[in-house]
Nucleic acid binder design. Structure first.
Lengths: 184, 184
DNA sequence: TAGCCATGATCAAGAAAATAGACAACGGCG
DNA sequence: CGCCGTTGTCTATTTTCTTGATCATGGCTA
């Protein structure tokens, strides 16, 4: 956990202005005690209060928190932490990672219930994709090619070719796929 | 008072991710109720809590508050709101405005007690300055020029010239000066 | 040196916020 | 239609913050 240290930052800002806790408190219209407590990180001020305090400097919340870095991106994902992005009609696409903006790769753990189908209207997007079938049987149609893949078999094609997936077996079908870039 | 609308912003960010209050709450490790309350601006979350919530997005506090503008700069100042920047040995320099970084002008309300003196070591800085004497008598030395100014009289010179001020009268001397830029 | 004032820290009491759980509204599906 | 899960909101209780007052410390002045 990145420690936030609002206190240290506030103290730095205040001392940069060369004013006392009491002076800042008076300007901001809050009690002097709270300035002391905040600077010692003995309390976590509400956003509203911090804004009031910073108005006494004056400084915006944006400036105050500038330099806060985005929390480290998640590297490992439990099975139930994958993000469901399809989840209808026997189709489940569970994506590795929540927000893929700025990322180069989309990885999905796909499950097709028996009879599940991505639909007559063939898919197209400007990317490349591939996958390995883990369990069950998956009928894959790409352009004018069609094949039923068994566990251990795989596919890889240019996503601009129209394509379609169907589980034509009696058993659930499980696939792990990758796509790049994630232009959805 | 600029209304902060943390709630609206949080709701926007959450919906941008297409997740529910409960989902965000689970990711952030907080109760779902608090997300609802925050989004309705019915509570003002602590900085720590907001950071936790945003970690579930994920987003940094800096990004969240980016776009918050600095509170309007103070335009009017009561006499006791001027900032004392000298305040020793019968000398009082009271500045208009707290923090002059980024500003082009320093304006001082100066008072010299009888006998007060800016010192033998002559002042120098890279600016220009001028002033009007309001009350009392002030001896001003600039380079090789010296003169005693009476109320209503004034001076203006290049601050790179060595200079010195003294109250040689029996009465307190009051001056309003301006200096540009405020390179102290 | 003693007095005075400013500063920062601390405390008990009151005011808010955070939590867990319950509730009504909505939509999907058999 | 009734069932079920999800959603957002609301309520009672616990937790935390916020305040005004008080304390210890240090600098300045007389």
């Amino acid at each position: 956990m990145t420690d936030l240290d609002v206190g240290g930052k506030l103290r730095a800002v205040r001392q940069m202005q060369g004013i006392s806790q009491r002076e800042l408190a008076k300007r901001a219209g809050v009690s002097n005690a709270i300035i002391s407590l905040i600077e010692q990180n003995r309390t976590s001020p509400s956003v509203g209060l911090l804004k009031k305090v910073l108005a006494g400097v004056p400084m915006s919340l944006g400036d105050f928190f500038a330099g806060e870095l985005t929390p480290r991106r998640q590297v490992f994902f439990a099975a139930d932490e994958l993000t469901e992005i399809a989840g209808r009609g026997g189709l489940s696409y569970r994506q590795v990672g929540r927000d893929l903006t700025g990322r180069a790769l989309q990885i999905l753990h796909e499950r097709y219930a028996p009879g599940a189908d991505t639909g007559e209207t063939l898919l197209r997007h400007d990317a490349e994709e591939g996958a390995v079938v883990i369990r069950g049987r998956l009928e894959v149609t790409v352009g004018d090619q069609r094949r039923v893949l068994e566990p251990g078999e795989a596919y890889y094609f240019d996503s601009r070719l129209p394509h379609r997936f169907r589980n034509i077996g009696e058993e659930e079908c499980e696939v792990v796929s990758a796509c790049t870039p994630p232009s959805f």
